[in-house]
């Protein structure tokens, strides 16, 4: 069996609005996958359903062959799926180091009564901060950091939870071009180390340059998928974006 993150016929409505309309998608393991589509096409709702933040009305999600549809968000993290949020979310009144330490790694719950600043934990957390180039901010409260720094910090936290698969919700949103390049190469690096990505993103340059596989959403369901080259020349995609 190939390892993958799959959804089958996910459906979710809010009041009268259908956010997901029978979304069946498969993201293969080891790839950088992108999920694109016009605003309101259900991408974030899709993330929220997959990560257990909201419960779909019907349909299933399986990860590595295991049904995770009704699991709680923290259990899904332990199963190996981490995520960032659309408008980056960090713990504002906690230091950068504590932000990263707050991620629960597999087996971390049984050691809950351990000191939070156990040297081995701190070393690991700091190494993530170093990797993302924000180690000099370890002692700074997150609310005093810049937007770009907070985005990196959020990613550091997610990485410290040790997920195999990472869902990024608009990683390029509101960041400057230099940081954009860095995020792009970081994703490729982490992917080379064996992590799978699913990225929701509007910046097409970034999407086209880093992804192996692209899924296009429109009105709550996939309408096309394929390699960046194939997607670029797909007329349905153009139609969805331009409303033709």
């Amino acid at each position: 069996m190939t390892k993958s993150l799959e959804t089958h016929e996910l459906r979710k409505t809010f009041g009268g609005v259908t956010a997901l309309d029978g979304a069946t998608v498969k993201f293969r393991h080891g790839r950088v996958n992108a999920l694109i589509g016009p605003n309101g096409s259900g991408k974030t709702t899709f993330f929220n359903c997959v990560t257990g933040m909201i419960r779909p009305d019907s349909g299933t999600t399986t990860y590595q062959g295991q049904d995770i549809t009704r699991k709680t968000p923290h259990a899904i993290v332990r199963a190996g799926i981490g995520r960032t949020f659309q408008l980056c979310r960090v713990f504002p009144r906690m230091t950068a180091l504590d932000n990263v330490l707050a991620a629960v790694r597999p087996g971390g719950i049984t050691r809950a009564l351990l000191g939070a600043r156990h040297p081995s934990e701190v070393d690991r957390a700091r190494s993530w901060l170093t990797r993302l180039g924000i180690e000099h901010l370890a002692g700074v409260e997150a609310r005093n950091m810049s937007w770009g720094q907070q985005k990196l910090l959020e990613l550091a936290g997610v990485l410290n939870a040790g997920p195999e698969t990472i869902l990024l919700d608009e990683p390029a949103g509101g960041v400057n071009p230099a940081l954009l390049d860095r995020i792009g190469s970081l994703v490729r690096e982490l992917n080379a180390e064996g992590r799978t990505f699913v990225i929701v993103e509007h910046n097409m340059d970034l999407v086209m340059s880093i992804s192996d596989h692209i899924v296009v959403f429109d009105r709550g369901r996939p309408i096309a998928e394929g390699t960046p080259a194939a997607i670029r020349s797909d007329e349905r995609v153009l139609g969805a974006y331009l409303g033709v």
Binding site: G82, R89, F91, D98, A102, A112, A116, G157
Partner: peptide, 24 residues
């Protein structure tokens, strides 16, 4: 000073986010 305490503080700061980082 425990990891448990850190998890609780994470709840105080942002409960969804804490959950998304694996805190039950």
């Amino acid at each position: 000073r425990s990891r448990f305490g850190l998890g609780l503080k994470a709840v105080r700061e942002d409960e969804d986010k804490a959950e998304a980082l694996g805190t039950p």
